[in-house]
Design a protein around this nucleic acid. Structure first.
Ligand code: MN
Ligand code: MN
Ligand code: MN
Ligand code: MN
Lengths: 221, 221
DNA sequence: CTGATTATTTAGAGTCATCTAAATATTGAC
DNA sequence: GTCAATATTTAGATGACTCTAAATAATCAG
């Protein structure tokens, strides 16, 4: 089995690949908070193990096996997040760091029991899809809030940000998964949005709006 | 914070100290499955950190701080064991190895939530006392089954053995915490006991009987 | 297309946890 | 009490993961 450290590299490579097409030395070194030299070493090591394919000077991509590894870890992460919220009454901003640790000490059996206890869930508390036990993950298409226009209403389905601060801030604004965000105004200057949520009005920066995903509701209400 | 490895040394030293008065190089190296040289190194390192007091050539004893560390880890271990049984429906022989991992990835908050969810429990599924959040652990006195005599009945309260095999074997014999074991006969030759449990009769070796603890019931039934 | 900038890799070294082999201290048999 | 057997420590070395500094490759501006 792999060390916690190696598992974290694999997961990070998966995320970078999804986000940027592939994991380059500099992206990986930044995400993992290590020097570029260290990232290069690890990429070569994972290539030797058949977890990634390495094209020198242009980064790595996961092999099929590598993808399976990554999805297993992500599955465990998301099952734990959901478990912490549903069973132990954690808030959605308190769970990511816990799951970052728990994902590495989860046996097959424990994973299966969590999954069963939770009723084979398909999304975690942030709206991220939970890969199934075969490592298959559905690709549900939502639109970023930032792409919607005044008059539109977006039902929030996913928050693409793990930072505790952002999630806590959203809670403060009364925004959670399932909330309907009615766009009142989009300020041309900086893209900030004025939205109505549960009767109140809130401002959402363009940066934040790019991390909020949901469905466009017909008829604007 | 300490690495998983160091936490395991601390916990093992605690257990050896309870069992043998103190942790010697050879005992520690055996329990930790490392060479004596490695055990010596770690004892010196922990001494430098103020976790243990080291008398060269005669082993280590935990300091007050060291004891607190150990009890924290043991608390987490036992909370997890209970959680796995009560919530996720594990059997008592399946939980120790899981808890060996989970005990090292448990935040203060997670520990508190587990404790709360379980209703501030005082014993784990093997009958071991769970230290409270101040690191206090009650010392409940039970007698080993091996010390009882024909005619006595012992109500099982604790199994001092983490091995999955032993626990599974006891389950097979229909023996669990709370079971009343009525000693029918003690074979002089090797100390094997014939006991009546739930109507049936079972043989229990002296070695096993020394790992089973309970209360002597008045009146023999 | 060339030179400068930026990204990546290589070289050399350090820490942590481990080992084996050798040196030293303690214990126990006579 | 002496000496052999046993336990412990010391010395020197290794693998995993990390670093900084130097070398090299890729990219981009003009
Ligand atoms: Mn997360
Ligand atoms: Mn999540
Ligand atoms: Mn246990
Ligand atoms: Mn236990």
């Amino acid at each position: 089995m792999h060390s916690v450290i190696v598992e974290n590299y694999i997961k990070t490579i998966y995320q970078l690949e999804n986000l940027e097409g592939r994991a380059t030395t500099s992206l990986l070194s930044e995400k993992m908070q290590v020097s570029p030299a260290t990232a290069t070493d690890m990429m070569k090591r994972l290539a030797d193990e058949g977890i990634v394919r390495h094209e020198p000077y242009r980064g790595v991509r996961l092999t099929g096996r590598g993808k399976k590894h990554a999805l297993k870890i992500i599955r465990r992460h998301r099952l734990w997040e959901l478990f912490l919220v549903q069973v132990l009454d954690f808030e959605w901003h308190e769970i990511h760091e816990e799951a970052e640790l728990l994902e590495h000490c989860t046996s097959e059996k424990l994973e299966a029991r969590l999954d069963e206890y939770l009723g084979h869930p398909t999304v975690d508390p942030h709206g991220h899809a939970i890969p199934n036990s075969n490592g298959e993950i559905p690709n549900i298409e939502y639109i970023p809030l930032a792409s919607a226009n005044p008059g539109d209403t977006v039902r929030l389905r996913r928050v693409n940000d793990d930072s505790s601060d952002v999630l806590q801030y959203l809670s403060q604004l009364g925004i959670e998964l399932g909330s309907d965000l009615a766009i009142v105004e989009k300020i041309a200057f900086d893209g900030t949005m004025r939205v109505r949520v549960d009767g109140g009005e809130q401002f959402i920066s363009e940066k934040l709006a790019n991390h909020l995903f949901g469905e466009l509701m017909k008829g604007g209400a």
